[in-house]
């Protein structure tokens, strides 16, 4: 009641209702650009995509929707028996499970070092440097790394040569191709986590550390009992945000390996992109519906687990 009187100080009831209606209209008018775009380009396509996954739609059917027949869950059954798709799913899980701790761990390490009382200017310099890979085009980065990992002219094998080691053909070898992409992705993405974690570290009240020191807590004990608990919500954000992104990795293998050798770097998104490219819309729709469900389920699960503890 108090709030409402503040809104319209001296207005009698009928006008206030009309005013509220008018404000409702204006509110919707202001958000129209978002609502229309969301309905037309996001919600609609999401539902159409799910619908497409239950049909035999192909690229040639775009101009002739009548040629599309429902096929039930056939696409989903085919998905389960598709060796390439299964390989893509396994690769994606391996990629997320290894890149995630690397990217968050390196980000935390960098943030802690930058927050350990070094001077302002060098701290800003390092922070900028670490963040740079994050803002650059993934295609540009992947091309640069392809050259870096090139077996003869590449910097990595040349440096290994100096210490007498013959480096492998990183991206053409089944056992080193995916690990190479994992290292590159961790290299590229840890800076984002660093920025977010550094801001969180700087907002931890100094008194908490002082109180822990008075209680006789050492450096490590202070890190574990003050820093980590204070960072928990932000670490949760970094984990959810990064894993949603990593679940969709695609450009890296597209540029560096085309998913090979022998599908060892084929990711879920790249496999879907490939099916889309050859015109199998219904089948690609089924695969992307599964990927979408897994990503949402994973995010919800992480948020649940993270909040409970």
């Amino acid at each position: 009641m108090a709030v409402r009187t503040k809104q319209a100080p001296a207005a009698p009831p009928p006008i206030r209702i009309r005013g509220a209606l008018r404000q409702s209209g204006i509110g919707w008018l202001f958000i129209t650009p978002f609502v229309v775009l969301f309905a037309v380009f996001y919600l609609g396509p999401l539902l159409v995509g799910i619908g497409m996954s239950f049909t035999d739609m192909r690229s040639t059917d775009v101009s002739d929707p009548l040629a599309v027949d429902p096929v039930g869950v056939e696409n989903y059954l085919r998905l389960m028996n598709d060796a390439a798709m299964r390989r893509a799913a396994v690769n994606t899980v391996v990629f997320v499970l290894t890149t995630l701790p690397l990217a968050v761990g390196l980000g935390l390490a960098a943030a802690v070092l930058l927050n350990s009382g070094i001077a302002r200017l060098p701290a800003a310099f390092f922070r900028l440097g670490y963040y740079l890979p994050n803002i650059t085009s993934i295609i540009g980065i992947a091309v640069a790394w392809k050259f870096l990992l090139e077996p003869e002219a590449g910097l990595v094998n040349r440096l290994l040569e100096l210490v007498g080691v013959q480096g492998p053909n990183w991206l053409q070898n089944e056992s080193t191709a995916l690990p190479s992409i994992i290292v590159m992705t961790a290299w590229r993405s840890f800076g984002f986590n660093m920025i977010v974690l550094l801001a969180a570290l700087q907002s931890i009240p100094r008194e908490l550390y002082e109180a822990a020191e008075v209680d006789g807590a050492g450096r490590w004990a202070r890190f574990r009992s003050v820093t980590v608990p204070s960072l928990r919500p932000v670490l949760l954000f970094c984990t959810v945000y990064s894993s949603v992104g990593f679940m969709q990795f695609m450009e890296e293998p597209l540029v560096m390996t085309r998913g090979g050798p022998l599908n060892s770097t084929l990711s879920a998104s790249l496999a879907i992109f490939g099916q889309f490219g050859v015109g199998n819309y219904g089948y690609a729709g089924a695969a992307s519906t599964v990927l979408f469900t897994v990503i949402v389920a994973l995010a919800v699960l992480q948020l649940r687990l993270g909040r409970r503890r």
Binding site: Y42, G44, P45, L46, G49, M250, S269, I272, Y281, I295
Partner: peptide
């Protein structure tokens, strides 16, 4: 919503 999920139906649109 992941980009890859929307790509195809958005392209059809």
């Amino acid at each position: 919503i992941p980009a890859i999920v929307l790509m195809m139906p958005q392209f059809v649109l």
